[in-house]
Simulated assay, not measured.
Amino acid sequence: MSSNHNRTRPPSLPADGGRPRRRLKTKPLLVLLVILFVGNLLWFIAWLIPNQPGGAEEVASVDGEEITRQEWMAAMEELHGRDTLLELVNEKVMATAAKEYNIKVSDKEIDLELAMLRSAQEGVDKTLYAADEEQLRDNLKTQLILEKVLTKDIVIDDKAVESFYQENQSLYDIKDAYRSRIIVVDSAAEADKAISELENGTSFEALAKERSIDTATGSLGGDIGYITKGQSSVDSKIAETVATIDVDGWSDPLEMEDGRIAILSVTEKAEGQTFSYNDVKEHISRELALEQLPQSVTPEAFWREFDAKWFYGE
């Protein structure tokens, strides 16, 4: 058996001794990032497809009846065109807003948001982490511009910011995070067969799609996003084991709480970071200001200001 199969370690206690920690809002950001990623992915697929005069090229056929490139592209636009174009317009709108209001977003700010996003998952957000890091950073930049525009006229007292930091300092002591994949089977015998195939060179991603009985993760090649040691929102056996697996290695079969058997793999390790008060005070101030807004605001609210128009009209 591979040296990757190490003994599990017990989950660590929070630095504050288990005291409940107040978390700032993350759901709207997660939802927006998922939408942005899906839009960008579809746009990239369309960009890869070369233009053909008339669009009459056959791309598939069923019982001798052809499906043309034009039909394919029309179906893609009907299903996804509006969302893809919406994402592109909003990206341009926020870039224009940044110039208009002289808003800057630094790499260090994006580093913080990315670390916070990985550590603050309330569940397994698989679609979000299917994005490559460069695209994710671009999407975070767009979101930060929006938040800075929305909060530029809201003043938050420094004492409130410092008080929040003191009460929630452990939020900014970010643990190591492990991007993971999983294969779920219903018996130890099936798990042994899967490990045998892995040892013979089958890719973990392909095997997850073929053998995992968990269809939600299996369809994504087993991707379950970033997991931290002791994370409460995933199966305890996974949370205990993830930190013991080498990158590109896999675990021994794990019996999960529901009785199913899992094989866990780690594809990437994101090193933990500790952020000081000076690192996070602007982040906290902005989040506290966002909580004062009466409702959520999207980039579309700025279309009229920056004369944005699109194919779909109003």
Rank of each mutant, 00 (worst) to 15 (best):
S3G: 14
N6E: 13
A15D: 15
A15Y: 15
A15I: 09
G17C: 03
G18T: 02
R19N: 06
L24K: 07
K25L: 07
L30M: 06
L32D: 14
L36D: 08
G39M: 00
N40G: 11
L41Q: 07
W43E: 14
F44E: 15
I45W: 12
W47D: 14
L48V: 02
I49P: 04
P53C: 06
S61T: 01
G64Y: 02
I67K: 00
E71V: 06
E71K: 07
W72F: 15
M73I: 10
E78I: 09
R82K: 10
R82I: 11
R82G: 08
D83P: 04
L85M: 13
L88I: 08
L88M: 13
N90T: 04
M94I: 13
A95H: 07
K99G: 03
K99S: 06
K99L: 06
E100V: 11
E100P: 01
I103M: 01
E109P: 00
I110S: 00
D111H: 02
Q121E: 12
Q121R: 07
E122Q: 11
K126W: 06
T127D: 13
T127K: 03
Q135D: 11
R137G: 15
R137E: 15
N139W: 14
L140P: 02
L140W: 04
L144Y: 05
I145S: 02
I145P: 02
K148A: 06
V149N: 11
K152G: 03
K152M: 09
D153S: 10
I154F: 03
K159E: 15
A160S: 08
V161H: 10
E162I: 05
E162Y: 13
E162G: 09
F164T: 01
F164P: 05
N168A: 02
S170L: 01
S170N: 07
L171M: 08
Y172L: 00
K175W: 05
A177I: 00
R181P: 00
I183C: 04
V184F: 06
D186G: 10
S187M: 03
A188P: 13
A189T: 13
A189L: 09
A194Y: 04
E197M: 05
E197S: 10
N200R: 13
G201Y: 08
F204E: 10
F204M: 06
A206W: 00
A208I: 07
K209M: 02
I213R: 09
D214Q: 06
D214K: 04
G221E: 01
G225L: 01
I227P: 09
T228C: 12
K229E: 11
G230R: 10
D235A: 02
K237C: 04
K237D: 10
E240V: 00
T241R: 04
T241Q: 13
D248R: 09
S251Y: 08
L254N: 07
E257M: 04
G259Y: 05
I261S: 00
S265L: 02
K269H: 14
K269L: 14
K269I: 14
A270G: 03
A270S: 11
G272I: 01
I284P: 03
L290M: 11
T298L: 09
P299T: 07
P299L: 09
P299V: 12
E300M: 09
A301L: 01
A301V: 10
R304P: 07
F311D: 15
F311L: 12
G313Y: 02
E314L: 09
E314K: 11
